[in-house]
Structures are given as C-alpha cells and as structure tokens.
Design a binder for these strands. Structure first.
Length: 647
RNA sequence: GCCCACGUAGCUCAGUCGGCAGAGCACUUCCUUGGUAAGGAAGAGGUCGCCGGUUCGAAUCCGGCCGUGGGCUCCA
C-alpha cells in the first residue's frame, strides 16, 4: 500500500509500526524528536500498527503543542507509577495533560507533603533513566475491569462503567504500572527529558464537591531541560508582576482583615487611577449615546423576587432589615434601570434607551475563590442596560462590540471572545434565541473579531458573548460581557408603543465593557507590570533637583506643568540625584525631570523616561507638549479622547 | 464551602530543642549639597493574626476562629 508522509509517497505494509514507516521518510535527527504521529488526523503511538486503510502519516514533534501534550500525559503516567511504588495503598484516578503541564489525582488516606513530592520526583527520574517502553494493548472491557478490580482501583472501574462506550479498552503499561488510557504516549519513558513537580492540591473527584476529595499533584514537563528552565523563570517573572505585590509597592490599594475578606481599600494613588478611568468611561458613554443613571445600593426584597434573583441568585446575596422590611444589597444593577424605563410611557421613537451606571455591587463569593482584586465581594461594574426594538438589536450589539474593541485596544490587551448559545434549561422562543444568537455572531464577524462557540453555555435567559483577558500567570479572567435577556422585560412588563399603536415588548441587553473596575485594574497592573500608561499614571512627572540651588526654579516649573493639567510633583529632598531617580523608577513614574544648574540656566528640564531612556534637556514648552501628547497617543481608535483634568 | 500551606515591625523576611523579640528597607533626628537605580551616623518602632488549652515558662506544642496563598473535570 501507498502512504503519504509530508508530500512524499512511499510503500508501506499494513500492520507495520507507524514509527517504522515514518523513520524511512524523515531524517534520523527528526525521528529522534518525534513522540507520536497522526494517521489520517488521528493521534497514535509510533509503535501502533498501520491500519490498512491509512493514507497519510504526520509526525508529532516533541516541541510542538501536540507533542508537549503527549510528553506531559506520559509524565503523568510516570508520576502515577512512582506514587504507586512509594505509596502502594493509593488509588489512581485520572491524569491528563493540561495547558502548561499535567496533573494526576490520587485517592489516599493522607495528603502528600512537599517531601513526598521530592521523593516522587526522584522516583520518576529513575523510571525515566530506565527508559522503559510504553506498551499499548487492547483488551475486552471485562478483562480490564477484572484487572483493576484485583488491584482495588475502584475509580478506574467507575470510569469504565460511566465513561467508556464500546467493549474494548486500551491499556498502557510501562514498567510495573498499567493504566487505563486512551493514549497516545511517547515510545519510551526516556523521551520525557525534563520534568518537575510543582504543587499538591485537593481536588474533588470529577470536580463535584459532594464527592470525595482527592490529592492532586501538579507538574510540568518539556522536550528539553532548557525549556523547563525558561518556563520556571517565566513563572518567577510573573510573580513579580502580581498585582497584589505591585498594589502594595505602588501604594494603590490594600486589604485588611479588620474590614473583611474580599473587600478592597483604595489608597490615594489607586483611587486617583480609578477616578481617571471612570471619568473616561462616563464621557465615553455619553459620547456614544448612553445616559448616566444611578440606583440605590439596597432594594426591597420583593423586587428581587420579581426579577427572579431571589430564586436564582439568593445564595450570593446579602440581606438586611429596615423597619421590619427585608432589603437585598444589590449584586447587579439591572433593577433600578428597569424601573427607570417603566417610570413613563415609552414610544418606539424613544428607543433605544441606554442606561449606564458605575454600579457598586456586593456578591457573596465563596471564601476559597477570593483572589486579590481579581475576585472580590464588593466591586464596581461599568454596567449598562440597553432596551431596544427587535429591529435595532443587531446595530446595538455591533455598537457594543465596537466599544469593547476600542477600549481594550486602548490598553493593548490580549483577549479571547466566546459566544455561548442556548442551554437545555432556558426560556424564550426558538425565534428569539436564533435572532439574538445570530445578532451576536454577526456583530463579531462584521468587526472581524475572532471567537469560539460554547455550545449550550448561555444563561437561561439568553445567549451571550464573554471577553476574557489574560493575567500575568496566563489565567483568564472574564471582563467584558454582552448578554441578551428575554426574562427581565417580561417580568417587569416593559413595553413601548409601536408605530401601529400596539404595545410591544422591547429587547434587552446587559453589557459591561471593563467588567469590574477592580478586576480590570488588577489585570492592567499585571499587564503593564505597574507601569501604567501616562494618561492613567497617578503621578505623571516628578521634578528632581540636584541641589537646593535649583529649588525656586523647580517650583516655578512645577506650577507651569500643573497649570497644563499634568499631574506633577517636586522632589526637593536633601538626597542625591541617584537616590531620587531610583525612587521615581520604583514608583514607575513615566517622566523624571531633572533640574540642575545647567537646566536652570537654559530654563529647561532634563527628561528621563522610566524605560531608562534620556531625552536630554527640553524647554518647559517641549516638556508640556511631550507629556500631553503621550497622554493622547493611545486614544486613536473610535474618536476617543483623554481629557481628565486634575486642576 | 472543601483540601493543603502560611500569618513575627509600615514592607520583605530570620528566629535552632519551649527559656529576655531579630535583620534589611522604610520612618525620625543629625552630618552630607551630591548630575540619572540606594552617601553616612544615631534613634524610634512589636498584643509574634485573634481566642482558649498544655506547661514553672509558649512566637515556638495542641484546639477553635479570622485572614492570606495554591487548588477544586482542560474529563480513560
């Protein structure tokens, strides 16, 4: 038979090992770096027999994402082997490759300690040094069950009963360890050239908190030791960018046990940054045809019952009582906005109504999920509710998507967009869902925004688009979201009078752009490593005098910059210039303006950027122009503008 | 909420076997007026997260609580 390997056609026999065939087509060097292969798109072991209907074989190299996944999955098996050897009483469960490594979940009578991890890692190295082969066998499911039953591996039995259809299963054995596994694996354990165990954590069996808690060991593996080193260094770098560390260092915010978990205290610098950002948002929303509104922090319980929040979201809400009336602290801003709409009769001519509120909400998040600014219990949403006619929906969504793209572009963020479609349990007609879902996808396509589809992951009340930003450790955090809602207009009986005099139901969108101001700033701090863009920097410029002799001159220069709306300071302390530069640098101040005798004589300032670059002496006019232009520079898209004034 | 680890000066962190609470930075004062990432000296600063227990004696051992961190289906 003939098979194709990277555009060359060659003779091969059915049943021959795939690897053997591959080895004839590619160089020995490349073959040594091959961990598995694709046969007509299906991943297989190099040792697997070539099927008689095969057409094409593609090698999977160790240093490709697919190859790394194979290496890591194999590393998980090697780890399980080591754990079983050291702790024979453990039961193995599942152990997949994940984005940056792998894990394996074990059921054991006690948690593993850091010392255990060292011992396990040492055992793994022995297994890797032994370079034993991974052997795959297909056996009847009944035989496999008998095997795992004899080993007391009840979780494996459960997997076979509940997850595997078909009568044959594949087993992978290396050394003394056999695991139920789909494969593929590297040919021999020695192919896992760099491995490191990272942490141990509890994890529920199948992620279900009602099921037993297992011990999960996380690790990572690479095709080469150098790649592992690079990755570990990257983790260290990311830790330095952690917004919790930088928030303290830059004196922006803090958390206090006395205040309570998940509630942030904003210090002057951080609050100034928030204010600038929020000021930008208000102006930008007004410019885009939104109206600013505001609702109370607590609203009567009956209203939450009517909206459905009391039934669906009560667990996450706080309640209080006033004059024997029960009140709920708002976890969302929509209710007051509904009432604003209802406060008068609306005509088709009034639509769309776009209500914007920087709304403070409280949500009772589980204590274990709180995480710096990225997950808190009190936060401010840049929230808006749009009520429009069905024929306006498409244009409204497009406007929001463009808004999101403009604002995220302003910060240069990497993000992922996901479209979530109708779940099984949902309300609304098929027609509503189809129209809204299409409006969402059309909007993204018309703007050229790539997105993934999460089938059936929408809210029960409508489809949605979620935008996720990445933090320093490559974790994703939801920021912007656009959600269609078929329930609230219904529950609050919102109507408008159409051209024909009939009362009709408006369509509703919930949407946020930044999401939560707190979370957004957390991600932004990590994204910029604390060096906020000049327009957001709490202190934009600091004048540093060399000696007291320039003090008067520097004070005049400071007044001049402040009058131009620049947030400037003067460092006239009795310290050496190097010391002042270092402090300004640590505080990530964009412009360090040095005033010495030379500058005083010329009537200018020596400009040093936080990048370390020195622009030389500039006149005060030039300095002012430089900084104001720098503030404006990112605002290119969509006619946006920076015009915060601190004077 | 659950599993594990952690909580010592404003910050970063030492503190051995249960025996008087430590360092660097920051802060205050003094000296120093120095040209692009830390000049020198002295001083002040503590309910060792909170509550209880064991002990002659607890930062240290035990229990509870509070808080912080990592994690809790990326499915053989």
């Amino acid at each position: 038979m003939q098979v194709t390997i990277e555009d060359q056609s060659l003779e091969a026999a059915a049943g021959e090992a795939c690897g053997q065939v591959l080895a004839r087509a590619i160089s020995g060097k490349r073959y040594k770096n091959t961990v598995a292969c694709l046969v007509d798109g299906q991943a297989r072991d190099l040792a697997s027999p070539l099927p008689d209907d095969a057409h094409e074989i593609t090698p999977i190299a160790a240093d490709t994402p697919q190859g790394l996944a194979v290496i890591r999955h194999s590393a998980a098996h090697i780890m399980a082997e080591a754990v079983k050897k050291l702790f024979p009483a453990v039961q193995v469960t599942i152990g997949p490759a994940i984005e940056n490594g792998f894990y394996y979940d074990f059921a054991y009578e006690r948690p593993f300690t850091p010392e255990d991890l060292e011992a396990i890692e040492a055992e793994m190295r022995k297994s890797i040094a032994a370079n034993t082969a991974f052997a795959c066998t297909y056996v009847p499911k009944a035989d496999a069950k008998a095997l795992f039953a004899s080993q007391g591996e009840s979780y494996k039995l459960e997997i076979m009963d509940e997850n595997i259809v078909g009568d044959t299963v594949s087993l992978y054995r290396h050394g003394a360890f056999t695991d139920l596994c789909r494969g593929p694996h590297v040919p021999t354990t020695g192919m896992v050239r760099a491995v490191k165990l990272l942490s141990v954590a509890g994890a529920y069996w199948r992620g279900d908190e009602k099921r037993p808690m297992l011990q999960r060991i996380y690790g990572t593996a690479f095709a080469a030791e150098a790649d592992l080193k690079t990755y570990l260094r990257h983790l260290e770098e990311a830790k330095k960018r952690d917004h919790r560390k930088l928030g303290t260092q830059l004196d922006m915010f803090s958390f206090s046990e006395e205040v309570g978990a998940g509630m942030c205290i904003w210090h002057p610098k951080g609050e100034l940054v928030r204010t600038i950002l929020e000021d930008f948002e208000r102006r930008e929303h007004l410019r885009r045809g939104y109206q600013l509104v505001r609702g109370p922090l607590i609203l009567r319980r009956e209203l939450w019952e009517r909206s459905g929040h009391y039934d669906n979201y009560r667990e996450n809400m706080y309640f209080t009582e006033i004059d024997e009336q029960s009140y709920g602290i708002k976890p969302m801003n929509c209710l007051a906005h509904m009432l604003i709409y209802k406060s008068r009769i609306r005509s088709y001519r009034d639509l769309p109504q776009r209500y914007f509120e920087l709304g403070v909400v409280h949500r009772h998040e589980k204590s274990g999920v709180l995480h710096g600014l990225l997950r808190v219990r009190q936060f401010t949403q840049d929230d808006a509710h749009i009520l429009c006619r069905p024929d306006q929906l498409q244009a409204e969504i497009t406007g929001v998507v463009r808004f999101v793209q403009d604002v995220l572009g302003l910060f240069g963020f990497d993000f992922e967009a996901e479209l979530s479609t109708r779940p099984e349990k949902s309300i609304g007609s098929d027609e509503d869902w189809d129209r809204a879902t299409k409006a969402l996808s059309d909007a993204m396509e018309s703007i050229g925004l790539p997105y993934e589809i999460n089938e059936g992951d929408g809210a029960f009340y409508g489809p949605k688009i979620d935008i996720k930003l990445k933090d320093a450790l490559d974790r994703r955090w939801q920021c912007a979201t656009i959600q269609c809602d078929f329930t609230l207009p219904e529950r609050f009986d919102l109507v408008y009078t159409d051209t024909d005099g009939e009362r009709k139901r408006p369509v509703m969108l919930h949407r946020v752009i930044l999401g939560a101001v707190e979370r957004f700033l957390g991600v932004l701090i990590e994204h910029t490593a604390g060096a906020l863009p000049t327009w957001l920097a709490p202190v934009q410029a600091r004048i540093l005098i060399v000696t007291d002799a320039q003090k008067d001159f520097a004070e005049q220069a400071l007044e001049r910059l402040k009058a131009a709306g620049i947030r400037a300071e003067l460092d006239d302390r009795n310290e050496k210039l190097g010391f002042k530069v270092r402090e300004a640098q640590v505080e990530k101040i964009p412009y360090m303006l040095v005033a010495g005798d030379k500058e005083k004589e010329l009537g200018g300032l020596n400009v040093r950027l936080r990048s370390g670059e020195n622009l030389g002496v500039k006149t005060l006019d030039e300095v002012e122009l430089l900084i104001t232009a720098d503030c404006q520079e990112p605002f290119k898209r969509g006619g946006m503008r920076y015009n915060f004034c601190s004077q």
